[in-house]
Design a protein around this nucleic acid. Structure first.
Lengths: 208, 208
DNA sequence: TATCCTTGTTACTGACCGGTAACATCCCTG
DNA sequence: CAGGGATGTTACCGGTCAGTAACAAGGATA
């Protein structure tokens, strides 16, 4: 477990190179308090380093923000790979697993919505280097969902995928206003209802 | 039309009392650029007044933010009343009208999501005076939707209402990352599909 | 005309912001 | 041991932030 601790709190472990510590600290602070609410000095301090080192690794705060989102996007893609590994050639199990994981993620007590979507709210400027990261990630997430629904043999895979996609996006934002006992807590039920309405009555994705 | 112009651009009309001009200017700037991105001086200038007058009407920027959201919440409630007036004792027409209006609103070119939800993203501090406004508004919107679904004779009104609620919230945020040609553009289709799956096959809400 | 409340103007505070310069120090490599 | 690249330290820049003080000017009412 001690080996894992170094990756669990990279921002406090001097063995981890400063660049990673900075990204880890920035990820925590940006997500919890918002991007505009966190200054670079606070990030450097939380990373156990200083502003100069931060600016030697990142040209600007905006670039750091973009890199922060790129890391999260990579994590999201990794999750999809794990899903395929966990349920090889069983797309419905993948869909079920995705839905359950998303609900658990949304309801996580110290979650505050999707970091990418939140960043889009905080950074409306079209030229911001983070925006293309956000658009690309969201587009790819939707694409994966569409393909998964298609492999499941759904009649209109795009329609079902969009419904699930919007339900998830809505659950993320709703959890921030109505809390973990609001509609977000019923995400799995809603997702299954939507899926069931797209799949011939003979076979639901929920076994038995 | 000249009389309407005074209410269309209250921030520029000296006949409108400064308090309303300030709220109008703040609404525009907060929504377009984000709350934290806009300073009080810029608001005062856009309202054709100055910072001192602003602080004579609002104790702090945070209070102005709360008032900005309160005004929007009042507007949202007004919309529901208009919906009842437009389709008296016809709940399914109200539901249909709500869905169509929401899609039009989401796809409006200079829309940037739900101002209340965006504010929740930008202001995570639990003590912020805007947070209770947001929670109350979102809770009430969901409540109205639940009651409307119940009057429509749906089996599980809460489930359908939550699905529609999350679809709308998701469409709002999705429009900011995937644009007006993304899933948000199919909100009506998705909403009708979800509604149809909750209503006995004999009667869809879509006429003909 | 005299009074009073609202508004405008200017200047200011103290704090914080993103970003940089100059220099000291360290540790790994040769 | 010597050298060099990465890191740390300190101080600074110009700008912006939210919020306030003091005073002048307006405009309505009495």
């Amino acid at each position: 477990m001690s080996a894992a601790a170094s990756s669990a709190f990279p921002s406090a472990n001097p063995r981890v190179p400063p660049r990673e510590r900075i990204i880890a600290a920035a990820s925590d602070l940006f997500y919890r308090h918002g991007i505009r609410a966190v200054g670079v000095e606070a990030i450097a301090e939380a990373a156990g380093t200083n502003k100069m080192t931060l600016y030697r690794h990142f040209n600007s705060k905006d670039e750091l923000v973009a890199e922060y989102l790129r890391c999260l996007a990579r994590g999201g893609e990794k999750f999809w790979l794990e899903l395929e590994v966990a349920h090889p050639s069983d797309p419905r199990a993948q869909l079920r697993g995705w839905l359950a994981a998303m609900q658990a993620h949304v309801l996580d007590s110290d979650q505050r919505g999707c970091a990418l979507a939140n960043a889009a709210v905080e950074l409306p400027e079209k030229e911001h280097p983070a925006r293309c990261v956000i658009e690309q990630y969201k587009s790819e997430q939707r694409g994966r969902l569409v393909r998964l629904c298609a492999v499941c043999g759904v009649d209109e895979p795009e329609l079902l995928a969009d419904e699930l996609f919007l339900l998830l996006e809505g659950a993320h934002v709703s959890a921030q206003s109505l809390g973990p006992n609001g509609p977000a807590s019923r995400l799995v039920r809603m997702g299954e209802a939507v899926i069931a309405s797209h799949i011939p009555a003979s076979s639901s994705i929920a076994p038995r």
